[in-house]
Amino acid sequence: MTLAARESLAYPETLPTRLVPDLLDRFQKVDYLQVFDTGFAVPETIDHFVSRKCRLHFSAAYELLQNPPVATSSKRDGRLIDKKAQDQALYQAWRERFDQTLDFPQGTRFDLCFFWDFFNYTDDIALKAFSDSLSPYLKDSAVGHAYVLLKEGHPVLHRSFGVAAKDEIVVRPAHWQALPAYARPQARVTSMLQDFRVNHSVLRRDGLLEISLKAQLANTQP
C-alpha cells in the first residue's frame, strides 16, 4: 500500500451538508442519472450510487491544474504586452486542456455536478474555460454543488471529497500536489459560470461557502 493510501485511511472525516440532500432528492425518480465529479472516484461515492442505474464520471480535473499553460500572444505593440490578447490566448490554452479531458461521448448530459472545491484552485480565466468546456454536456435541469473559498487563511484546502451519505460528505487529504488557491467573493465565482446560478448557499464554520447551483443554460447544445 502506498504512503498516500495509508494517509487516506488514517484521515477519513465527514462533513454534514444541508444542500446535497435537496440536490439528490430531485433525482429520486430519474431513471438514469448522469453525475459529473471533478475529483477521483472514492469508495463512498461509488457505494452511494451503486444501487441505482447511473453513469458516474470522475474527471480528476485537479490534475489539469498542476502545470498551468503559458500563453504566448503574438499581438504585441512594441514592448508593451497586449493584456487582452494575452488573456484570450491563455483562455484558449486552458480551453484546449479542458476540452481534451471533458471529451464525453455524444449524448452525454449531466444531471448533477459535484465541483467540490475545484473552483478555488482556478483563476478567473481557467474557471471560465472550464465552465465553457463543460457547458455542452449539461442538461437544462442540471444542478451542481461546490465549496467556495471566500478568504485566505482557512485550513480547508488540498482535500478530496465524496458522497458518504445523502447529508454527509467524506473528506480526505488529497493525494495530488498542493495547488495555489484563489479566494474570491461568490459573485465573482458565479460570474465565470455561464450555465449556473446560485440556488442556495451556506457559510460553513470552517470558512468555506457551500453553494448549490442550478442550470441557466443559454448555450446551444450539440
Binding site: 500500500m1 502506498t2 498516500a4 493510501a5 495509508r6 487516506s8 485511511l9 477521483f40 472516484a41 469508495p43 461509488i46 450510487f49 451503486v50 441505482r52 442505474k53 447511473c54 453513469r55 458516474l56 464520471h57 470522475f58 474527471s59 480528476a60 490534475e63 464525453f104 493525494h175
Partner: peptide, 12 residues
C-alpha cells in the same frame, strides 16, 4: 477499495 484511485466513467 480504500486507497484506490480511479478517473474515468463508470456505468452502473
Amino acid at each position: 477499495e480504500e486507497g484506490a484511485r480511479f478517473k474515468g466513467t463508470i456505468d452502473i
